[in-house]
Amino acid sequence: MSNAQDSRLNTNFVEQGARKRIEYVLDSGSMRELVTPFDRVISPWLEVQGIVPQFDDGVVVARGAIDGKSVIAIAIDGSFQGGSLGEVAGAKIAGALELAVEANQAGESIAAVLMFETGGVRLQEANLGLAAIAEIQSAIVALRKLQPVVALITGPVGCFGGMSITAGLCSYLLMTREGRLGLNGPQVIEQEAGVGEYDSRDRPFIWGLTGGEQRYTTGLVDDFFGSDVIEVRNKVQEYLRKGVPDTFRSEAIQSSLDRLKNVDTQHQITSEAAREIFAKGASL
């Protein structure tokens, strides 16, 4: 697939669509999309609710090479339904990862790169979105033992809901300054817990807690860098070359429990306090 000329001049990764993001991280000319828009597998649940569908359901899956190594690359399109996952979008991700597990078990060598731009479950397909996320998570836990699974959160949407849990399962988690990572979206927390707990309109506050820089400083992600496409591409290559890590972030059980049991919860937390709490214990 060739580049459209206008976006070739634009080198900010954050501004690229899902298909273009994959094209930028893959070795030139190696991208082969699976279940393309021309396969017309649209959501079976949106039209009946009066919602205009998109031909790729907001997820692009492709095989290709990075640095000469075979990979499956998956990108969520944050501009369609907020990057939310419904049945088809979720099945594209889970199914591709399941095939990658199968191929690796059969002796092939295929790593994974995931580009998240998602609010989590698509509420119009609620339980099927949630089910698909569980299936994606299962596949990642199986695949990361065999191959590096590199996840990238660059923004503008960020990575929320059940997919933030998915991000926490990956071998390596990379963010840019524009990226945000959190379980519950700001509005949901404000609705559930009140504006005193979480002010969804206070952008500096939210960025301070969930933005890429804070997540890196608190050890919840592996790297933090700028959003120039060359830089993003180099970082993805660098982490793929690291291979399967000795341990995963999700296995730091004892140190996490020790740290969390010693938090002063009498006072509300700040981003500075969070940094101190993480600086005290062993890094995750």
Binding site: G17, P37, F38, V52, P53, Q54, F55, D77, S79, F80
Partner: peptide, 18 residues
């Protein structure tokens, strides 16, 4: 040629030619 432009985001549209 098979063609797809745009996306289904607010104020935009996707157009597919097959």
């Amino acid at each position: 040629n098979q063609t797809l432009v745009g996306y289904v985001g607010s104020g935009d549209l996707e157009v597919m030619i097959d």
